[in-house]
Amino acid sequence: MTDQRFREAVEQYGDMVFRLAYSYLKNRADAEDVMQETLLKFYVEPREFESADHEKHWLLRVAANECKKLLRSPWRRRTDPLDEAAEAAAFDRPAQSELFRQVMALPPKYRAAVYLYYYEGYSVKETGELLGAKASTVQTWLMRARGQLKNKLKEAEA
């Protein structure tokens, strides 16, 4: 891979990988570490990707694995509530801050599935492939996430 292509890839995929990693890890520093690690693996990956979709799928898969590895690692930074609050405060509208807080209160697997399904537009089956889970399991995660968000947002309104 040329240096120029790598620079383009950082711009093209950096935020996408970061969003998935933040959804998983809820910690900016760890998510940025995962973004860098994933992109550097991409830089040295010798294979030729069949398409842009294949390339994107590979990056998200590697990022998801890096996140899972980090979640099991004793070296992982713990979530700092102030860090999360600072992220939430950066939104323009209170509705965005509220939704962000509620999504971040979900379990990590639910947050990652919600991101891939609702933001990246992957199907349930594809989301399962990316997260190493069965489609039926992802379906359950999404259903529970929707249920929890609905209840929590209602509570917040009340």
């Binding site: 935020d15 970061f18 998510a31 940025e32 992220e87 965005q96 999504v103 609702y118 929707r146």
Partner: peptide
């Protein structure tokens, strides 16, 4: 149901 549009707007603000 989840407001998908609001979700996308919100998370598009999250950047490295």
């Amino acid at each position: 149901m989840m407001d998908e549009r609001l979700y996308r707007e919100t998370f598009s603000r999250l950047r490295a």
